[in-house]
Lab assay of single mutants.
Amino acid sequence: KELVLVLYDYQEKSPREVTVKKGDILTLLNSTNKDWWKVEVDDRQGFIPAAYLKKL
């Protein structure tokens, strides 16, 4: 499984997104879309802008 580091706080703006904090380490589920990556946060799955994440 691939992990990503959150570079900036992000507040979800729709039900398909998730809220994260800078410094969080998340499981990356899908990065095929270059703009929005799907991650897992506390048993929730959702999207975050790829620019907010860095692969570890």
Results as ranks from 00 to 15, higher is better:
3 L>G: 03
41 V>L: 10
12 E>V: 07
36 W>I: 04
25 I>M: 06
4 V>K: 00
25 I>Q: 04
20 V>W: 05
56 L>C: 10
1 K>N: 11
56 L>P: 02
33 N>R: 11
44 R>H: 08
12 E>C: 13
20 V>D: 00
52 Y>R: 04
13 K>I: 07
42 D>W: 11
40 E>G: 08
10 Y>M: 01
36 W>A: 03
15 P>N: 11
31 S>F: 07
18 V>I: 14
32 T>Q: 12
27 T>E: 10
14 S>Q: 08
6 V>R: 00
13 K>S: 11
27 T>N: 09
39 V>P: 00
5 L>P: 00
5 L>A: 05
35 D>Y: 15
29 L>V: 13
34 K>R: 13
11 Q>R: 12
31 S>G: 11
31 S>H: 10
41 V>M: 09
34 K>H: 13
44 R>K: 13
24 D>Y: 08
48 I>Y: 01
25 I>G: 00
14 S>M: 08
56 L>R: 03
17 E>D: 05
32 T>F: 10
16 R>E: 11
48 I>K: 00
47 F>L: 08
34 K>S: 12
36 W>Q: 03
16 R>L: 13
10 Y>R: 03
28 L>H: 01
19 T>E: 03
6 V>N: 00
35 D>L: 15
24 D>H: 08
5 L>Y: 10
41 V>S: 11
43 D>L: 10
19 T>G: 05
29 L>Q: 03
19 T>F: 04
27 T>W: 15
48 I>W: 01
10 Y>D: 01
39 V>N: 00
17 E>G: 13
41 V>I: 13
55 K>N: 06
7 L>E: 03
43 D>H: 12
45 Q>M: 10
35 D>P: 03
42 D>H: 13
52 Y>G: 07
47 F>E: 04
15 P>T: 10
47 F>M: 08
42 D>S: 13
19 T>S: 15
47 F>I: 08
36 W>V: 04
19 T>W: 04
2 E>L: 10
21 K>C: 11
31 S>T: 09
22 K>E: 07
55 K>T: 07
20 V>Y: 05
2 E>C: 14
32 T>H: 13
4 V>S: 02
32 T>G: 10
25 I>C: 06
3 L>M: 11
55 K>W: 07
55 K>V: 12
17 E>Y: 05
22 K>T: 07
40 E>S: 10
54 K>Y: 13
55 K>H: 08
52 Y>C: 09
26 L>F: 04
45 Q>G: 06
21 K>M: 09
22 K>M: 08
27 T>H: 13
8 Y>T: 08
24 D>W: 15
53 L>P: 00
46 G>S: 04
19 T>Y: 04
56 L>N: 03
14 S>L: 08
9 D>I: 02
50 A>L: 02
40 E>Q: 15
34 K>I: 10
48 I>S: 03
16 R>F: 14
37 W>F: 05
47 F>T: 03
46 G>W: 07
20 V>R: 01
46 G>L: 09
33 N>D: 15
29 L>T: 06
34 K>L: 11
11 Q>N: 14
44 R>P: 00
19 T>V: 03
40 E>A: 10
6 V>P: 00
28 L>G: 01
47 F>C: 11
17 E>V: 04
56 L>T: 06
54 K>I: 12
27 T>M: 12
25 I>W: 04
26 L>A: 09
37 W>K: 01
56 L>D: 02
45 Q>V: 13
49 P>H: 04
52 Y>V: 11
47 F>K: 02
22 K>I: 05
46 G>E: 06
52 Y>A: 10
27 T>S: 10
17 E>P: 06
7 L>C: 06
26 L>I: 13
51 A>F: 12
24 D>V: 08
17 E>L: 05
46 G>D: 02
11 Q>L: 14
33 N>E: 09
7 L>D: 01
29 L>M: 07
49 P>C: 05
11 Q>M: 11
23 G>T: 01
26 L>Y: 05
26 L>Q: 02
27 T>Q: 12
14 S>W: 07
4 V>H: 01
14 S>T: 12
54 K>H: 11
53 L>A: 10
23 G>A: 03
45 Q>H: 10
2 E>Q: 12
15 P>S: 13
23 G>F: 05
6 V>Y: 01
18 V>K: 02
16 R>C: 15
3 L>P: 04
2 E>R: 12
51 A>C: 14
8 Y>K: 15
49 P>W: 04
53 L>W: 01
30 N>D: 15
26 L>C: 11
16 R>S: 13
44 R>A: 06
20 V>I: 05
23 G>E: 02
49 P>R: 05
27 T>K: 13
5 L>G: 02
53 L>M: 05
8 Y>W: 13
4 V>G: 04
48 I>V: 15
14 S>K: 08
36 W>C: 08
37 W>H: 03
12 E>T: 09
39 V>G: 00
35 D>K: 14
